[in-house]
């Protein structure tokens, strides 16, 4: 099948076949990362602008490396959205970026929907690198690639996602992606971190007891607790959170013996995940990071193909 998405705004818009193709393409690109010369000329002459309006280290790095390994010219711009009322509007920023004729804009933004806003206003491809609490499609795809490598088939997997589901764009994208691929998702967190209607996003079951949520799971994915959000009275203390919703060697035994442990990073050791588990044999956290580059190469390659066909 051929890929027809000019923009990657979310997993929600992707069909199972699209996801399959992205994963297969990523799989082929992955080999480049182990070469001595880690560069192919595929996107030579293409310009990719990584517009990160929200702090990010690994996602930006990952997209930048992905672009460079494909020989694209990648340029990073960063900005803060906190002073957005006084500053330039996103539309003006977008128009200015577009005037420099990029082929792809990769955007990270604190406001949900910002990539959609951008896609409606620029001619080039837009790839969402995380928008507010909405979606983080490349993260979900690298999660899937990692699961596929370790578990063979994604269909039928029991995946537990534990943490602040309300504020998690990773959880939303993973729910869409896993549901499309035929996995079952269990989300778990304190009552304050479970948004209304999350179960309607896909094949999702909601838990507040972590032990039930991870029982016999194939994959346990721990989400980062945003320390800075705790003024918002979501939880009484990190200590209590760690006790009821932290992954440790004891409760991990409830999952399947061959279960894998995932985390989108950066980890708060001792809060949502104990160091023993984070460094333990079941963790595949660095595989996720490695797969991130391959998945992002695949996304850049695929949207660029659609873009160049449309331009012609």
């Amino acid at each position: 099948m051929s890929f027809t998405h000019k923009h990657i705004l979310g997993i929600e818009q992707l069909a199972k076949e699209d996801i399959q193709l992205i994963l297969d393409t990523a799989d082929s690109f992955k080999e480049i990362n182990s070469r001595d010369i880690k560069k192919v000329p595929t996107l030579r002459g293409k310009t990719i602008i990584n517009a990160f309006f929200e702090a990010s280290t690994r996602t930006r790095l990952s997209f930048e490396i992905a672009g460079k390994r494909l020989s694209a010219d990648t340029v990073n711009i960063s900005g803060s959205t906190s002073s957005v009322v006084k500053g330039e509007t996103l539309e003006d920023t977008a128009k200015n970026i577009e005037a420099m004729a990029p082929d792809i804009i990769v955007i990270r933004h604190a406001h949900s929907g910002a990539p959609h806003y951008l896609a409606e206003r620029v001619g080039c491809s837009v790839v969402n690198a995380g928008d507010g609490a909405h979606e983080h499609p490349s993260q979900a795809l690298l999660d899937l690639l990692t699961m596929r490598e370790h578990k063979g088939d994604i269909e039928g997997l029991e995946v537990a996602i534990v943490g602040d589901i309300t504020h998690s764009r990773v959880a939303r994208s993973d729910i869409y992606a896993l549901t499309r691929m035929g996995a079952r998702v269990r989300v778990c967190g304190p009552g304050t971190m479970l948004p209304i209607g999350i179960e309607r996003l896909g094949n999702v079951e909601v838990f507040t007891d972590m032990r039930e949520a991870i029982k016999d799971a194939d994959v346990v994915m721990m989400l980062r607790i945003q320390m800075e959000r705790q003024s918002n009275v979501m939880i009484p203390s990190l200590r209590e959170y760690a006790r009821f919703y932290g992954l440790n060697p004891t409760n991990l035994q409830l999952a399947k013996p061959d279960a894998i442990v995932m985390h989108p990073g950066p980890m708060n050791r001792g809060v949502e995940i104990s160091s023993v588990v984070a460094d333990g044999p079941q963790n595949v956290i660095l595989d996720q990071v490695e797969n991130g580059v391959a998945v992002r190469m695949a996304l850049l390659y695929l949207v660029s193909g659609v873009e160049s066909m449309q331009t012609r």
Partner: peptide, 13 residues
Amino acid sequence: NEGPVSTELGLKG
């Protein structure tokens, strides 16, 4: 409005 749509769109309800 806080509800399934706000959850889906990732907007505060």
